[in-house]
């Protein structure tokens, strides 16, 4: 599985990388623009990401914008249904607007609130049918 971790905070990023390392190849991006570039490159190469962990508060593009941008690209390229990339939001923002915006406007798969709990994250991945262990 190919994973993209978009997170500007070093500690969080490392933690996620540690947790997800056993699940597959992890790429990292330190801000929204980098995340978009990584997503686009992977798409061009024909090896798109299977999972994206997305922080919201990042410099440049924020996670919400990245998410909507990704969905827009998918729409343009006619990537739909089960082929859409799975996105887990990992953020400290727990207000209703952000949560619903991510779900409804961005069609994210899951929304985890920081601090990230390893078991919870792995459970979500399993639920999405991406777990490396099965």
């Amino acid at each position: 599985m190919k994973i993209l971790i978009a997170e500007d905070d070093f500690v969080c990023r490392t933690l996620l990388q540690e947790i997800l390392a056993e699940q597959g190849v992890c790429h990292v991006a330190v801000d929204g623009l980098e995340a978009m570039a990584a997503y686009r490159n992977a798409l061009e190469d024909g090896k798109p990401f299977d999972l994206i962990c997305l922080d919201i508060m990042m410099p440049g593009l924020d996670g919400q914008q990245v998410l909507q941008e990704i969905r827009k690209i998918e729409q343009e390229r006619n990537i739909g249904g089960k082929e859409m990339v799975k996105v887990i939001m990992t953020t400290a923002l727990a207000d209703s607007k952000n949560i619903m915006r991510a779900f409804i406007k961005g069609s994210c798969e899951s929304y985890l609130i920081k601090p990230i709990d390893k078991d919870k994250l792995l459970a979500e991945i399993k639920k999405l049918g991406l777990s490396a262990k099965d």
Binding site: R71, Q75, N78, G81, F103, S107, S110, Y111
Partner: peptide, 24 residues
């Protein structure tokens, strides 16, 4: 047709959004 395919994707995404939000 191409248009319909796009529409289906669109509808899919909307249902998907509802599912995600409701699941949460």
């Amino acid at each position: 047709s191409e248009d319909t395919r796009q529409l289906i994707n669109e509808v899919f995404r909307l249902f998907h959004s509802i599912k995600g939000g409701a699941g949460f």
